[in-house]
Amino acid sequence: MKAIGMLAALTLSLSLPALVSCRPPYAMETPEGFKRFERSRDFRLITADGVRVKAREVKNYPAATLEFWTEALQLHLEAQGYVSKSRECFETDKGLPGCTVEVVLPHGAEDWVLSTTLFLARDRIVLVEAAAPYERYQPVEQRLRAALATFDPGR
């Protein structure tokens, strides 16, 4: 009985860090009106009317600057037919530079905004993407931008 207890404790002590490490390392103030999927393995937020935000990361390869990737992203999206809405660079509260590229595209019966914010964190590029129909995105745009200024890529 004692052995089983020890085994359970050992299992828990090994699996707990693993479980914790499954959570995304990102931190950001949740903008008013958004709800975070707390138990999700991804960093995801959503509003009642479906404005979605999700963060992910890719390798910064070939290693390049934030300006380089922002330019490359915008050119690539425009080449595909997305129409540029805005491009804005800023610094987070902790002094981390970030750049947001917003584009618009018809999707179904509506025109959608796709917003992509880039942060460089060591050898990674952290992407915070948001999308919604224009009419639903605009009312939360400023709140989302304010929240992005609190983004922390972690690690």
Partner: peptide, 28 residues
């Protein structure tokens, strides 16, 4: 008040792999 041309997206391959993963359809 909305795009007249509804089907305006064309696939363009980027030499930077991750850029090919940025798309509205994929995100949704």
């Amino acid at each position: 008040f909305r795009f007249k041309e509804r089907d305006r997206l064309i696939y363009v391959h980027s030499p930077f792999g991750w850029l090919n993963t940025v798309s509205l359809d994929r995100f949704i």
